[in-house]
Design a protein around this nucleic acid. Structure first.
Lengths: 149, 149
DNA sequence: TATGGCCTTGGAGTGCACTCCAGGCAACCC
DNA sequence: GGGTTGCCTGGAGTGCACTCCAAGGCCATA
C-alpha cells in the first residue's frame, strides 16, 4: 500500500505534516508519481496554473522524470488539496506562498503557522456569517417575488 | 419629516421594491439626499467606485444638484446595501448589472428576478458548505499545531 | 521516417474590479 | 481676488490570478 518515492524519502523534505487530509477525487492507490495532465484531471486546475504555482513558490520543487517532465507525488496532491481549500476562503495567493515558505523552513515555524491558520479561521467564520446574513436578505426577496407571482 | 426629492417623486421610477432592507450603518433620519462623500462614509466604497457603478449601469441615474453634483437618495443607499451583499457572495458585477436592468424594466421581470435570486441563493448555500468544509480542515491543522507547541 | 501526443520554457496577454489622473468647474472663507 | 475644498469627466493604469503563445524536446506508433 505504502509506495514510497525513493527519490524523496531519504531527505524527509519538510512538508505539511498534520493528520492525513481527506482526498476529494479518487486517486489510484499504490502510486506516487503522476504526470501534470493526471494532476489536471484530479484537481481541476490547468497545467498552466500548476506550473505557475511552482514558479511563484506555492509548491516546492516537483520531482522530474529523466526527460525533465514533472512527476507529482501524493504529497504534492495533498498540498494542492489544501491550497484549493484555502483558495476558497479568498486567501490571497501571496499569503499561501508565505505559508508554503513556513512549511519549507521546518518545525521551527509551527507557532507562526498556527497563528496564520488561526487568523484564516477567523476570516472564514466571519465570511460564513456574512453569507448567512446575505442569505437572509435573499430569502426575504425571494419570498417577496414568490408571493407576487 | 419625509423630505421628498421633487425630481424623482412624480415618476415612481422602478426600484427594488420588496420589504425594507435593514440598513447597516446609521444614516441620519429625515434626509433623502446625500453627497458622494457621505455615501463613501456610509458604504465604505470609494467615490471612484460609486461613479464607476453608475457608468456601468449598476445604479440607475442618480439625482444631481443644480451644479451637477450627485445627490444620493435613501433608495440609492438601500440599493448599495444590496449590491454590497451580492458582492460578498462573489456574484460577478455583470450579473448584478443584469439584475439592475431587470429592476429598471419593472414588474414584468419578477419571474426572472426570482429565478436569478434563487440561483444566487443556491450558490451561497454551496459556498457556505465549502467554507464549513474548509473550516474542518483548518481546525484539524490548528489543533495539530496547537498540540505540537 | 514521419506523424501525433505530451511535455518543456520564458514571456506576453487577458479579464475583472477597481483605482487613479489630469484638467476643470463651483462654492465658500479670508 | 486668492486659496482651499469638493466635485466633475473621460480615459488610462493597477493588481491579482491566471491564461495563453511560440518554439521546441522526447518518444511511441504507423
Amino acid at each position: 500500500m505504502q509506495t514510497t518515492t525513493a527519490t524523496t524519502e531519504p531527505t524527509p523534505a519538510p512538508v505539511d505534516v498534520c493528520s492525513a487530509p481527506p482526498r476529494r477525487h479518487p486517486r489510484p492507490d499504490g502510486r506516487d508519481s503522476y504526470t501534470i495532465s493526471e494532476v489536471v484531471a484530479f484537481t481541476g486546475l490547468t497545467a498552466h496554473t500548476l506550473r505557475w504555482y511552482e514558479r511563484i513558490g506555492l509548491m516546492s520543487h516537483i520531482d522530474r522524470s529523466h526527460t525533465g517532465q514533472r512527476r507529482y507525488s501524493n504529497r504534492d496532491l495533498d498540498w494542492l488539496d489544501l491550497v484549493g481549500k484555502l483558495r476558497l476562503t479568498g486567501m490571497p495567493v501571496a499569503d499561501m506562498v508565505r505559508y508554503a515558505e513556513l512549511v519549507r523552513e521546518g518545525e521551527t515555524t509551527y507557532r507562526e503557522r498556527h497563528a496564520l491558520l488561526e487568523a484564516t479561521r477567523r476570516d472564514v467564520l466571519s465570511r460564513i456569517a456574512e453569507l448567512q446574513d446575505t442569505l437572509a436578505v435573499l430569502d426575504r426577496k425571494i419570498s417577496f417575488y414568490g408571493d407576487a407571482l
